[in-house]
Design a protein around this nucleic acid. Sequence first.
DNA 1: GCCGTTTTCGGCCCGACTGTTTTCAGTCG
Length: 580
Amino acid sequence: MPVHNEDIARIFDRIADLLEIEGDNPFRIRAYRNAARTLRELGMDVRKLVEQGEDLTTLPGIGRDLAAKIHEILDTGRCRALEKLEKKLPPELPELLRIPGLGPKRVHALYHELDIHTPEQLERAARDGRIRDLPGFGARTEARILETLHAHADTARRFKLAVAAQYAEPLVEYLQGVKGVERVEVAGSYRRAKETVGDLDVLAIAKNGDAVTRAFTRYDEVDSVLSRGPTRATVILGSGLQVDLRVVPRESYGAALYYFTGSRAHNIAVRRIAQKRGLKVNEYGVWRGDSRIAGDDEKKVLKAIGLPWIPPELRENRGEIEAARAGLLPDLVKLSDLRGDLHAHSRATDGHASILEMARAARAHGFEYLAITDHSRRLTVAHGLDRKRLLAQIETIDQLNDRLHGITLLKGIEVDILEDGRLDLPDAVLEKLDLVVGAVHSSFDLSRAKQTRRILRAMDNPYFTLLAHPTGRLIDRRAPYDVDMGRLIHHARQRGCYLELNAHPERLDLLDTHCQMAREEGVLVAVNSDAHSIADFDNLRFGIGQARRGWLEKKDVLNTRTLRQLRRLLARPRRNAGKG
DNA sequence: GCCGTTTTCGGCCCGACTGTTTTCAGTCG
């Protein structure tokens, strides 16, 4: 079994969990967690870096010791440090940390005092009333544990950004109507446009916080109230989504917004910078001694620390702070930069609207062009187009273009990439199209080598323009297929073809880290809706959020180009094909 | 365990809410 970054990251997280239960040095624990994070966000296999003879201690948060452990895990598949810990403590113990309200200290007590290792044992002990007598526990805590054990599966789940938006928007509206509330905004991972959010962090300006948190807990979607004070309250909505509300005075709003937008890693890094300058940063402002030197406005807060404003989507401590200090922050792409959409379906296959309806909807979004890219014949469930039907559709689009004003339809196809890398329709018909969007819809479980070879070969087709949803993942439902994204991006560069960032809320595929790789390699990314109905164009905002998380600028995105520029770019793979 | 234009040793982000603590630890974000 090849060891991937995620495997190593999990080992480090387990070590951190166990050390924490043992009451080890918190900074040592954090070091393991930071290293796990570095590995997860590396964007390429650490194994590859090792093969290239790179020094792993150049990676952030990885020093001599952890580099050696990575080598050990890569070489042997094992980690002696973890095995040693697992001899001291039951390996399943970290599971208990996932239960809300249980931290390392309490898990330590449960294990050492009552020999509890598992949620099942915990439940039994709680039912028997044996937990309340432990020091630091009580009857309330015991009851709470039983309660959360039952709700456990529900509360642990994350919500797709688009789903969270459906809950966030009406809640914001409700809070804006509460007396005394001046302003409401959702911060946290929602504001950073993460593909999924664990909870909502809502921020409000008001003088009387107590009245506002009280009104918040009375919102009719609230299922249970976890805590409530004069500046903060936490509730669970009926959907299972947790919402934290914080209320701050106007003079602290910028500091609070910055603080609660996170990410945690970003905040820590920025506060360390502030600390070195003799400043303290908290949710109420930036402080020099007892005097607040900034607070009401996010831009001013960052300025006081000596940094330019950093877009929320970048705040992951993945180089944005260094870029900010060097004046090298990207000028991120905006939704309004999009001039068209290069992936949409019609009723001819599995779409719900006619080509004309789709064209009009795209025009209403201000688009200059829309590519119709229905499925190809192999995808029979979607009634995929064969050669004959595609030729008929080409004719239809030509006719529509003659009478449509203000928008141009591009002739395309979302053609299946077959298992051997051939495309699902003959070149003779692909040649007649403006663009060919290739996609994997089958054989997801090929080995990494085979899957990579399959897609590389598809890209070699002279008519191949754009690789749709490049990892094939469906958030929470289907893991990405195993493919060497670095090689795909490199090959796209050589072939002159492009990658899609599919904006469908279930896909958001390319991942943000892949976008960064594409950008560094100079491969343009198309942010596409994959619309199956006229409403689906609205999903582009989530795609743009993801693109911004991937540091993409307007110039990095294919469909920010004018139709004229775009046509030239779409012809590039064909031109390159002749050069062998 | 990591890290370094104040440091190779001595630091490492900061505050709110809860429950059981009668002065604060634990958890969370």
